[in-house]
Design a protein around this nucleic acid. Sequence first.
RNA 1: UCAGGUGUAGCUCAAUCGGCAGAGCGGGUGGCUGUUAACCACUAGGUUGGAGGUUCGAGUCCUCCCACCUGAGCCA
Length: 431
Amino acid sequence: MAQTTYIADIAKYLGQEVTLQGWIYNSTQKGKLQFIMLRDGTGIIQCVLFKGNVSDELFDACLALTQESSARISGTVTEDKRAKGGFELQISGVEILQVAGEFPISPKEHGIDFLMEHRHLWLRSALQHAVLRVRHEVIRACRDYFDNLGFTLIDAPIFTPAACEGTTTLFETNYFDEKAYLTQSGQLYMEAAAMAFGKVYCFGPTFRAEKSKTRRHLTEFWMIEPEVAYCDLAMDMQYAEGLIAYIVERVLDNRQEELKRLERDISKLEAIQKPFPRLDYDDAAKILKDAGSSFVYGDDLGAPDETIISQKYASPVMVTHYPADVKAFYMKRDPQRNDRALCVDVLAPEGYGEIIGGGQREDDLQALLARIKAHNLPQEAFDWYLDLRKYGSVPHAGFGLGLERTVTWLCGLQHIRETIPFPRTISRIYP
RNA sequence: UCAGGUGUAGCUCAAUCGGCAGAGCGGGUGGCUGUUAACCACUAGGUUGGAGGUUCGAGUCCUCCCACCUGAGCCA
């Protein structure tokens, strides 16, 4: 096949004859004049066809082009203010590959269930396209951030023998004659990797069988999880803050067009600056009490509580030192206050909620053993993990950033389900 | 799991007190040389989520079930 010309590069071909390969996004006819909006995955361009410029047969064939029909369209690139994007293709030839059947998704409005049922086709629409391009930029930014800091990417397994926390939120599956679970976090494996490589991260899908039906939950979502040896909570928070600031910067630099299409208020992203506000649990509790929340001191923060706190600041907020009882067994306790965990949650602005959870890990063997017992966890399952405390244990810390929640926030979306190509929720595993 | 809501044409939604099942879009046909979700005319398109019940009469009222949406809890 000949070298493809893409719509994204169309300005380079002004005045030249090119052939574009794509799909009909929309078309309008006006008697002897046709406008065909062609998309090719990199952009959309208006193609103009006058009767008389091509054969009557071809003109009539183009009239029959339906939404999402596939075609190669040749013509001369011109500049025209009347066209969206400023460029047009004056059609000289059309090679129709397929005339599509009636496309289910029209340019008019649709309900969410209908769109999700047609997710495989919905991906072609401009807004979904924009969201997934932002997602791609966020993924690249995460990788670049850690790669540039000398981290090593270590992939965590997806089949796991036991839970990180309780088994109620795990998807169980058969593993030959045994039970296995889909991973809920790569963290424990990253701790092993950090003891080998110093600075590591993993980036992959994780699975939670939580029966959550909210705009913030998926049963399958992607997390980036760094883990660093010889790292304390303060340093961990610097990494978290640095990562988020870098992601925001990259998206603002490279995805302006997509953010505009999503009608995102870009000034809200531009306002984000290091250092992020830092609150400890008691500070947060005071804010909630003053705001009249039903929050109970000693409990974890609820979703409405996170909204109250995050809306007080322009940048993401870092909340630290939660009561150890509401956090996972592997969290290290604060030596100053033994009932507090050396942990941090990062809350996205504008009420988007928690996007990062992390902290310093318990590095003392006896303390960890006691914690496993207290949480009624099967010690055998953690023998390998306990080995990490027997052979050169060091202070270490890490966190997990939820990719889809981050993208939801950056795009200013109402719901997380549009930020992953094929969302899995409690009520959907199709398509 | 709990609470609230929704379910009517391919899609998005109307239908007053229980009284003829309707519109826009999309589809089809015709018209139009600057359309941007074009416009104009005509046209086809219905097991009102399912099962029972009340009634002369049910999209509408009652019971049960199903699906989906939103939120809570839990979490990223």
